[in-house]
């Protein structure tokens, strides 16, 4: 079904190709289509798995670390869960799932975001970069090198988010001073307390003038 018109986002309920296609196959859902909202909700508990899955998934085109993906996802799937559970890119971490720790930071079209608060369907057509996409083959990104050099982590769990955030911090022009770095890195919690080393790593990369 999603293959018929892959990557076309549903413009609204009446022009949802995914759904229109499905409706051909099922009269059961006609009523649902006419009165969505609460009825849909009430109905959802009654559907069998197959019907529900077909109805509820929408097509999604994403480029992740340079690899193009054509996917079919539930609207409620977050970008973070898509990366970790479906694309098996577990480098992006789940630290709170509420946008309160920064461990899930990735770049969407070059901007750092908390992937736990993004619905994957909202990223249709966008380019995602995760920690797995930062190095150039075997050659680490300068920020990864700097984190190693300055011991910018201990347990390592917040590290991918810190590094993605650190790269963005420089790209955004917010690494002008120690104080500015601290402020603009405050959306990434490190419970082990590697903050000073993280700042040192960012300053090193910034002052080294390497391209990030």
């Amino acid at each position: 079904m999603a293959d018929e018109n892959p990557g076309t986002p549903p413009e609204n309920a009446d022009h949802d190709g995914n759904r229109r296609d499905f409706l051909k196959k099922s009269s059961l859902l006609t009523a649902v289509a006419l009165t969505p909202g609460p009825v849909l909700h009430a109905a959802s508990a009654e559907w069998d798995e197959k019907v529900a899955a077909a109805f509820e998934k929408v097509p999604l085109k994403l480029e992740v670390n340079g690899v193009k993906h054509k996917l079919s996802v539930e609207p409620r799937t977050t970008l973070l869960d898509l990366l970790r559970e479906q694309l098996h890119l577990t480098g992006t971490k789940k630290g709170c799932d509420y946008g309160q720790c920064g461990a899930c930071t990735v770049h969407v079209d070059g901007e750092r975001v908390n992937s736990c608060l993004r619905l994957a369907v909202m990223e249709d057509g966008k380019k995602i970069t995760t920690i797995e996409g930062l190095a150039n083959g075997d050659k680490l990104h300068p920020m990864q090198e700097a984190f190693v050099k300055h011991d910018g982590f201990q347990c390592g769990y917040c590290t991918p988010g810190q590094i993605m955030s650190a790269v963005a911090c420089i790209r955004e022009g917010h690494a002008g001073s120690e104080g500015e770095i601290k402020e603009y890195m405050s959306g990434n919690i490190c419970r082990c307390g590697a903050y000073s080393n993280i700042v040192a790593a960012i300053q090193d990369v910034k002052n080294g003038g390497q391209k990030v």
Partner: peptide, 14 residues
């Protein structure tokens, strides 16, 4: 270090 900065280190749920 390399495993941790590249996201290759696998934690419990991974």
């Amino acid at each position: 270090a390399r495993l941790k900065v590249t996201g290759a280190a696998r934690y419990a749920a991974e």
